[in-house]
Amino acid sequence: MKGRHADRFPNEPFRASAALRNASFAPGWILDKGFGIVAVAMGISVFVLAGLLGWELYRGAEKAISRYGMAFLTGSQWDPVAGRFGALPFLYGTFLSSAIALLLAFPLSVATALFLTELAPVWLRRPVLGLIDIMAAVPSVVWGLWAMFEMVPWLRQSAFPFLQKAFHWLPFFQGPIYGVSLLAGALVIAIMITPIITSLAIEILRSVPPTLREAAWALGATRWEVIQVAVLPYGRSALVGAGVLGLGRALGETMAVTMVIGNRPEILLSLFAPGYTLASVLVNEFAEATSEEHLSALFAIGLTLVAVTLIVNFFARLLIHNVPFFFSPRPLPLQPIETKQ
C-alpha cells in the first residue's frame, strides 16, 4: 500500500510518519480526518461549556434577579433569615483584597524575575526557579492553614500594631486588631499569586532577544539602563498580561481567603476589620442554604463573580494594548526596529 501523498512530500519527516502509518491498523486519511474532528469538537466544547455554565448560573439566579434586579449589586444587607440579599459588601471585599494583593505581588514578581534573569549568578537561578515552581503548586488550603496558624498571629502581635503606630492618621489602619482581616486576606492572596506571576515574568524576560540587550550595552548603557531601555519595554504588554492572569486567580481565590478574612459582610474603611469576598460566601453558605431565596441569591453571587472576572479581564486587555506603560518614561529608540522586522 503506497501513501497517496508520498510523491507530494518527498522529505525526511514524512517518510518517518509513513513508516509509522504502515505499522498501524488504519490508513492515514482516517487518522487525519479523525484528528481533525476531535480537535474541532474540543474547540467547540469550550464554547458549549461556557454557555452551559452561564445558562445554569442564570437559571439558578433567576429568582433573585427578578426580585432585586440591579439593586442586588448595590444592596449592602445579607440576611438569610429575613431573606434580604445584597452583594455590595462581597463585591467591595473582592475588589479591595484583589487590588491590594496585585499591588503587592506584581512589583515583587517582576523584580524577582528581573533579578533571576538579569542579575543573579547562574548557580543560584536553578534552585530559586525550582522553589518558585513548588510554591505555585502548593494547594490553596495549605496556604490557608499556614496563614491561619502562623501568619495571622504574627500580624496581630507584630505587623499590625506597628502599622497602626506608624500610620495611625490614615483611616485604613484604625480600629481594633483581630488579626483576621481584609488585609490578612489580601496578603495571603498576594503570597499565592506571586509565584505564578513570577514564573510567567521569567519566561517573558527570557524571551527578550539578546540582540536588544547587546545593542543597549554597545551604546554604553548601564545595567539598569539596559533593563529600562531594552528589557522591560520589550516585555511590557506580556508582563501586564501576566499580572492579569494573577488578578484572575486573586478574584476567584477561595479557601485560603475564607480562612483568614473574617467573613463579615460589612463595608468598613479599616483594613484591619474583617471583610468578605464573593467566592468566600459561596463556599461558606452553599451547602447549608435551606431556603429557595437564599440558594437563588447565592447563584446570583456566582453569576456576579463570573461577570466581574470577565469585565476585569476585558479592561485589562484594553489596558495592555492602549495605555502607554510606566516603564517607558521616554520615547525608546529600540521600538521602531522591533516593529519593522
Binding site: 444587607q77 445579607w78 440576611d79 438569610p80 433569615v81 429575613a82 491561619m148 496558624f149 483581630y178 483576621v180 475564607t258 480562612m259 473574617g262 467573613n263 463579615r264 459582610p265 474583617p274 468578605y276 463556599v283 461558606n284 453558605e285 447549608e288 442554604a289 435551606t290 437564599h294
Partner: peptide, 23 residues
Amino acid sequence: GRGTAVRWPTGIGAKGNEGVAGQ
C-alpha cells in the same frame, strides 16, 4: 433570628468547627 446562617450583629466568622476552635 434562627437559621443555619444568620446576619451576625458582631464578631468574626471562621469556617467550620475546626476554624472556630483554631481562632
